[in-house]
């Protein structure tokens, strides 16, 4: 894994990013509907609307607007939010840590349980517990994170009220964070009551996000493991005195992870997209929640900035997944 490779990969991502930026920009302006008219409501006069339009540069041609937007973007300026009257970059930077911590925990949960399910399912190959695992995966995979969130609220928040269903942590605890990475920071600063509260509040949103990813990853990994179990090196390992479980996790697993990661990589980006609704449902103060507010307020610069942020996150996740695959498979390293 060399630097040239990394740089190459990043350069390859640039056109995708440029495409994402352009398309959002055009979509927001070409699709029928007038954001300014919606922003001002029915009471506004023609003159008011024209003035506002000029203020946000919306009276220029689309091409002209785009050039201005791009030239600002290159200097790192994402513009000013219409509804919050703050710098978009700063706004997003403040909320991003919240989402990142949630997403990382959700991914860990998803991957951890996916591994357990896939390994157990493979271990029970051809016996009835395997069907149980398959059935569980089949039901879990069909239900999107949004419905999981609502169901979990109903079950663990209302029917058996043992879990908090709103916010990032107990409001009674005061914690002025420097970085907004509550989880990491509270651990480092030894404020474990904060850690506990943050984790506790994170359970339901993180599990809602994790379940679909867990199911799809488990399904893909299990079928890759099954294919791997029929390979000759596994047969050979079975004659060499390794136990059944050991053959699976120390011989087949790593090989199965290569195609499984490649196949389920996209799903990791879906999890990030899922934060939009899940954060909304749980009142979680991340960029997903912010995105819905931005849309409701027709805050074009903020929407634009958030879509860009999501696109960058997606591309980074894809990059990490590619790196992970090259790390796993020595045959890919020296090409």
């Amino acid at each position: 894994m060399s630097y040239p490779y990394l740089i190459n990969r990043l350069l390859l991502a640039l056109p995708t990013l440029a495409g994402a930026v352009t398309i959002t920009f055009i979509l927001l302006r070409v699709v029928p509907g007038d954001p300014i008219a919606m922003m001002t409501g029915p009471g506004a006069t023609e003159a008011d609307i024209a003035q506002l339009r000029a203020h946000y540069g919306l009276d220029q041609s689309i091409a002209h607007q785009f050039v201005i937007y791009l030239s600002q973007l290159i200097t790192g300026d994402l513009g000013t939010s219409i509804s919050l009257r703050q710098n978009v970059g700063e706004l997003i930077a403040g909320r991003l840590p919240v989402t990142i911590e949630l997403v990382v925990i959700a991914m860990l949960i998803a991957v951890g349980f996916a591994l357990i399910l896939a390994l157990k399912g493979t271990f029970w190959r051809g016996r009835w517990p395997e069907r149980l695992v398959d059935g569980f995966i089949g039901v879990t995979v069909a239900i999107p994170d949004f419905l999981w969130a609502l169901s979990l609220i109903l079950i663990l928040g209302v029917a058996i009220p043992i879990m908090p269903i709103f916010g990032r942590m107990d409001l009674t605890i005061s914690f002025d964070s420097w970085t907004n990475f509550y989880l990491t920071e509270s651990l480092l600063r030894g404020r474990f009551e904060v850690t506990r509260s943050v984790l506790y509040h994170m359970v339901l949103p993180a599990v809602s996000l994790a379940l679909p990813l867990m199911a799809i990853t488990a399904r893909v990994l299990k079928s890759c493991l099954n294919a791997e179990m029929n390979r000759e090196y596994v047969t050979l390992a079975r004659t060499q005195g390794f136990g059944r479980l050991k053959v699976i996790y120390s011989q087949a697993l790593r090989n199965a992870l290569v195609p499984a990661t490649a196949l389920s990589g996209v799903q990791f980006t879906f999890l990030i997209g899922g934060t939009v609704l899940v954060e909304r449902i749980f009142g979680y103060p991340g960029i997903g929640n912010m995105a819905i507010d931005a849309v409701i307020n027709r805050d074009l610069p903020l929407i634009q900035g958030l879509v860009l942020t999501f696109a960058i996150l997606f591309i980074l996740v894809n990059l990490l997944i590619d790196l992970f695959i090259t790390f796993l498979d020595p045959r890919l390293r020296h090409v």
Binding site: T16, L17, G19, A20, I23, T24, L27, L28, V266, T269, F270, I272, G273, G274, V276, L277, G288, A291, I292, V295, I303, L306, V307, F310, A311, F314, I315
Partner: peptide, 11 residues
């Protein structure tokens, strides 16, 4: 695919 589908639909 590099857009969050949900966000895009809302937008």
């Amino acid at each position: 695919m590099s857009f969050p589908a949900v966000l895009l639909s809302i937008v």
